[in-house]
Design a protein around this nucleic acid. Structure first.
Length: 497
DNA sequence: AGCACA
């Protein structure tokens, strides 16, 4: 007995713990633990209200969501509750669980509720890591119907990403869906193959009743089957097409979505422009991060060009050695809204005054099949694109780039490990000739010797558009013909697991 | 059963 006490006092030698255990100064904020994880604010209020006015609560706190804080208007009210249960024979309970109450070590509940935490019958769901086209409204409906009747769904795209408003009958249903799905992932088999993980972030919407005008591919009202159908939205070019194999195919688009795997090297707007310009005029480029993976949207003037680029580049690596492997799909977008000139985006369609003075008139891409799809010699690859194609903005023409100052530091030293040889002429370069080790000498930074002062072309651009000739197997050690081939088995993860 | 969160 005595030794126990001694041990305890010794083990709790830290002043923190000591204070915790013995000198809890009263606070009008109470800390409640051992709550059921389903505990609601209402239940907290119900429990604490008899002792005073509750001005704030914070529920479902902690890793197990089994703690809470309650703030009384007055310190004496908190004291009365603590002392009541300190001497009471029957303990405080929520849903039959004994709740342990003590003074919090803080004196107010701060930031109790962001708007999204105020319960309601409408959920705001952010689907991370996907584009709007990746998750159909039917999939969303399926997933969220598991918790109750879904009245309405409206989807939209915001800066936060692809979002959906899900309307349930009541906030209890909404809460159960939120509790079950927040942070979880939509099962892989319900998603297109190129989608990696896609986590749901769920908060409450302030909406009570969504105003759905049409049944369309972006909104549904399941309570009103008579609602007019927006056929253009449903049947339009954006509607997924079922391929001959019965699998969903994304509709073609003039905008490609590139997911870049194995991003060993920075992939800049310039690099992408270089790569994708081999197939036609690149109008706009936007680079962004989705779930830690770099993606880019590349806009061509027409679907045909985009299709040619996709066909040729799919599965290929920008850099030798399996680095920066491209996975291309069609985007839902048809016209990107990008900053004209930033490090993550470019709009090549805008007139550049400094360019117009000296610019060669742009010539449209004529026949991608009849000419080599990529320049044959590396240094001035940009200028040598056959067909007279001249982008309205040429990264190699420094004189025409008033606001663009190359910053070599953009390449972290440890990744910029070699001469920026845009070995774009894969045909002229035997597979394996460019061994990664030979090329990535950390001491070689002879960018300018290549005639390419633009920093955006990292080492050894050993790009191998297939075009007329098939890809060379084994040219990149890590290259898989089908990038998804190895991923399929583990793609099936347990439902919401 | 043991202190949140931007």
């Amino acid at each position: 007995m005595i030794s126990e006490i001694v041990n305890k006092s010794m083990s709790s030698s830290s002043s923190q713990q000591h204070q915790f255990r013995y000198t809890q100064t009263p606070s009008k904020v109470l800390h409640l633990r051992n709550l059921p994880w389903e505990c609601t604010d209402d239940e907290l209020v119900h429990l604490c209200n008899p002792f005073g006015n509750i001005v704030n609560t914070k529920c479902n706190v902690g890793a197990n969501r089994n703690q809470a804080f309650v703030e009384f208007a007055d310190l004496n009210q908190a004291i009365s509750m603590v002392s009541y249960y300190a001497s009471s024979s029957d303990p405080a309970q929520v849903r039959g669980k004994t709740v342990y109450i003590q003074y919090s070590n803080r004196h107010e509940i701060v930031n109790n509720k962001s708007p999204g935490d105020i319960p309601g019958n409408v959920l705001l769901v952010t689907i991370e890591g996907v584009e709007a086209g990746d998750v159909s409204i039917d999939v969303i409906h399926l997933v969220f119907s598991a918790f109750g009747f879904v009245h309405k769904i409206a989807t939209f795209e915001k800066t936060a990403g692809f979002q959906a408003l899900i309307q349930y009958t009541d906030s209890d249903t909404a809460a159960s869906a939120r509790n079950a799905l927040d942070g979880r992932s939509i099962p892989r088999y319900l998603l297109p193959e190129h989608v990696g993980s896609c986590h749901l972030r769920i908060s409450y919407s302030a909406h009570r009743d969504l105003n759905i005008k049409f049944q369309s591919n972006r909104s549904r009202d399941y309570t009103n089957p008579m609602l007019p159908v927006n056929h253009t939205a449903i049947d339009g070019a954006l509607q997924p097409v079922i391929g001959p194999d019965g699998k969903k195919k994304e509709p073609e688009s003039n905008v490609l979505l590139a997911s870049i795997e194995n991003m060993q090297y920075a992939v800049t707007v310039d690099v992408l422009h270089t790569v994708f310009s081999s197939f036609g005029t690149v109008q706009k480029i936007a680079i962004f991060e989705k779930n830690g993976q770099t993606q880019a949207l590349i806009q061509y003037p027409d679907v045909t060009t985009a299709a040619a680029a996709r066909e040729a580049l799919e599965g290929h690596c920008i850099y030798d050695g399996g680095y920066c492997k491209l996975h291309l799909t069609y985007s839902r977008h048809t016209d990107l809204n990008v900053k004209a000139f930033s490090d993550k985006s470019r709009d090549y369609t805008l007139p550049d005054l400094s360019l117009l003075a000296t610019q060669v008139p742009p010539t449209g891409w004529q026949n991608p099949q009849s000419t080599p799809m990529y320049p044959v010699s590396s240094p001035a690859f940009q200028a040598q694109v056959p067909g007279g194609q001249m982008p309205s903005w040429d990264p190699n023409q420094q004189a025409f780039r008033p606001s663009y100052v190359p910053t070599p530091d953009n390449f972290p030293g440890q990744t910029y490990r070699g001469p920026p040889i845009p070995a774009y002429a894969s045909a002229a370069m035997p597979a394996g000739a460019s061994s990664p080790h030979a090329q990535r000498n950390p001491n070689v930074h002879n960018a300018s010797s290549m005639g390419i002062t633009q920093h955006g072309v990292p080492p050894n651009v050993n790009f191998q558009p297939s075009g007329p000739s098939p890809p060379v197997p084994g040219s990149s050690p890590h290259m898989q013909t089908n990038p998804m081939a190895g991923a399929a088995p583990q793609g099936h993860r347990p439902y919401y697991g």
